[in-house]
Simulated assay, not measured.
Amino acid sequence: MSVFDLIDTPALLESTNQCIQCEACLEACCTSDTADGPSMNPMDRLTVINRTLKGYAPLPDEVKALYYCTECGRCDGTCPQEIPISQTIADGKVMMVSKGFGPLEKHENMIKGLFKNRNAVGKPAEERLDWIPDHLKQKVKFEEAEGDTLLYVGCLSSYMDKATAAASLEILMAAGEDVKLLRDEYCCGIYPYNAGKWEEAKAIFTDMAETFKQAGIKRIIVPCAGCHRAFSHYYPRLLEDFDIKVLHIAEVIKELLDAGRIALSPSTQSVTIHDACKMGRKYGLYDIPRELLKACGATLSELPENRDEALCCGSGSGVRSLDAPLSMKIAGKVLSTATEETLVSTCPFCIFNMNYTSRKTEAGKKAVHIATLVRSSMANA
């Protein structure tokens, strides 16, 4: 069976047929008023998918519009027809690839680089573990050690947001959590999956699943929202019998705090919380980050649009690698509505894009991961 057979084409056609062109989704979409070109909104993307399913050959700009969707899911809650819009667009990209219309050239180049470097950011594979703090290098355990819990750091935290990686490991080890790392951590494969290149994604998924099996892994802890989404939803979709438990580091920190295994020395600080799309709308992780921030002594400020209605940071589903200026425009909206200098997120992608945007636009804001803030508040820090 071809991997493309996993797409329920009749359901895809039904979803797109249900669209009544009411435009309710347009205001919710982060690209409808920021991206240049036609069809840069959920409604028109559904139309493109529908027509292509019926034999129409989409124009290059129409295919591009699908790939400029961040899959944030904000449009899903606005549809009066209850169409699962973001999932429909995601599956629509897979259909485009199966028909030879996608992905875009930049995707192809990114995926080639991923297979070459084993990461999605084009960095040398041998530098992936450089984030490990010096004082833990002789104490950290790797895959051959006993134990069934893996800290899977992910590409962004390994290379671009090392503070998140280090904080996650330090918290777990300070709490006595029996956790180990992979010496040769491979990219989770979310990039080719989101590009609709499922054959390539499945190759990575299969490789990683075998690595987990050989290492005896039954539980994976991740600081990355993208990796969480991949392991909890995408792997089970393409692989049979993938049932490893996946937890975000924030969930584990809450468990450790409740069990008295870590202690915090609260300090007065004011922060604005940003609900990352994949941990918020896609997973429902809203309360725990807020509880952790309060435990750290933080005065919490909410963005005007938060929780289910939170604004996307603009980097999701590979959009930042396609169009960095567009991602910056979208991130700029988040930064402009934050009342505090520090924003806290559960996603390294959001953190990287918001910090990059802030530097380039001199917005004067800084984004940090929830794990980094907790680590700075620990009694033994």
Rank of each mutant, 00 (worst) to 15 (best):
E210C: 07
A250N: 04
K294A: 15
V344H: 13
D275L: 01
V334R: 03
M378R: 15
I20D: 08
E185H: 05
G216T: 12
T268L: 15
A203E: 14
P325N: 01
A209S: 10
K137H: 08
A201P: 08
V121M: 03
E105S: 04
A379R: 02
L292G: 01
K218I: 08
I273R: 08
K180G: 04
G189N: 06
K294P: 02
D33M: 12
G332H: 09
K141L: 12
R45E: 02
E341D: 06
D258R: 07
V334E: 00
D258P: 12
E105P: 01
G284A: 04
T70E: 09
A24P: 08
W131L: 04
T211F: 01
R281L: 02
S15H: 11
K139F: 07
S232M: 09
D308Q: 15
H228S: 11
N119V: 01
C277K: 03
T70L: 12
L285E: 05
K64C: 04
K365I: 08
A310M: 02
L13G: 14
K282Q: 11
M43S: 10
P80G: 02
K245Y: 04
D241M: 08
A167W: 07
T149C: 10
E309H: 14
M43E: 15
C19N: 10
F349L: 08
E177F: 12
P223I: 08
N194R: 15
T361R: 11
V246G: 10
V374M: 07
A295W: 03
E210K: 13
A125V: 08
D178G: 11
R51L: 10
F349E: 01
N109S: 13
A215D: 02
T211P: 06
S377M: 12
E210Y: 05
E341W: 00
V334D: 04
C313L: 00
G73S: 12
K213E: 15
T357Q: 08
I190N: 07
L285H: 06
C25P: 05
A167N: 03
G196Q: 08
D33E: 13
I190L: 12
K180V: 05
I244L: 09
Q269H: 06
V319K: 01
F231C: 01
L311A: 10
N353Q: 14
L300G: 01
T211L: 11
T357M: 04
N117H: 13
V94F: 11
G226D: 01
R237W: 12
E362I: 10
G102H: 10
P348G: 05
T78K: 15
C79R: 00
A145C: 03
K54E: 11
S15N: 15
D8K: 07
A379Q: 11
E14V: 11
R51T: 03
P266Y: 00
T339C: 04
L104A: 05
V368F: 06
A35V: 04
V94N: 10
P266M: 00
V222Q: 02
G100C: 06
